[in-house]
């Protein structure tokens, strides 16, 4: 298996006023294709900084980052934007959907920045496909304020999927959701990971959410302090089936 993500001696230093803050102090990590990696750690541990660099939103101070075998750690801003567009699908805690814009248009948004000049009909078709993958075809015309939190996050996942990214980068995706909806959303990640072989990197500080992954790395003080496979993996599908009352639709 080839490594999708390979970081070598990653260092990130911020200068805040006079003080240098070392957010990452030399992180080495490899993530294989098809893995479901949970990144855990308390706040200030450097996991957010790690996610920003892995997500190509930021560049490391030193060290290397290979995404799909390509060194992206020294790329220009515009080149990084193109990498984000093509290879990374972001899912945020706060959904970050455009308000007063239909789910379909929200999902299509990354296609507008990819270049290539896709036809409108073609874009719609692609968007409907990924909306189907998250089970929201019948909500394509709804605006975010007409959707529940879980549905909004599913639209966001569909948006992340539309360019067939190498990795799905989820930053606290269940932070704004209740327990049941959280399980459902994690179920979607697990399904995409299992059925499509999409590499998922999940940033979370909740241990029980991290247990939906296949592997967990723990950050502390800018270093990886633990890296182990998850032995008793939670399976969202089974948990949902076991839930006593499926009364309410998401």
């Amino acid at each position: 298996m080839s490594a999708v993500i390979s970081v070598k001696n990653l260092v990130k230093t911020y200068v805040v006023g006079e003080v240098e803050v070392k957010a990452l102090r030399g992180v080495n990590l490899e993530v294989q294709r098809g893995e479901f990696l949970a990144v855990a750690g308390p706040s200030g541990s450097g996991k957010s900084t790690f996610m920003h660099i892995v997500g190509c939103l930021d560049r490391p101070t030193s060290g290397q980052y290979f995404l799909d075998g390509q060194d992206v750690s020294r790329m220009s801003k515009d080149a990084l934007a193109a990498v984000r567009n093509k290879k990374i699908g972001f899912v945020f805690q706060g959904f970050n959907l455009l308000s007063r814009t239909s789910a379909l248009d929200n999902v299509e948004l990354p296609l507008l920045y990819g270049g290539g000049g896709m036809k409108t009909a073609q874009r719609h078709k692609r968007a409907m496909e990924v909306l189907n993958a998250v089970g929201l075809v019948d909500r394509a015309d709804h605006h975010p304020n007409q959707l529940s939190g879980g549905q909004q996050q599913r639209v966001a996942i569909a948006r992340a999927l539309i360019n067939n990214p190498s990795i799905l980068l989820a930053d606290e995706p269940t932070g704004n959701l209740d327990t049941k909806t959280s399980i459902e959303v994690m179920g979607i990640f697990q399904r995409l990971n299992r059925e499509r072989g999409i590499t998922v990197v999940l940033i979370t500080h909740e241990m029980d959410i991290a247990e939906y992954g296949t592997r967990m790395v723990t950050f502390r003080d800018g270093l990886v302090v633990a890296d182990k496979g998850i032995t008793r993996r939670r399976i969202a599908q089974d948990e949902l089936a076991a839930l006593p009352e499926p009364a309410e639709a998401v």
């Binding site: 939103l57 193109a82 093509k86």
Partner: peptide
Amino acid sequence: TREIGLRMAIGARGRD
């Protein structure tokens, strides 16, 4: 600002 951040995250360049 958040919309701009999102657009950038999904691949919008500064000039876009």
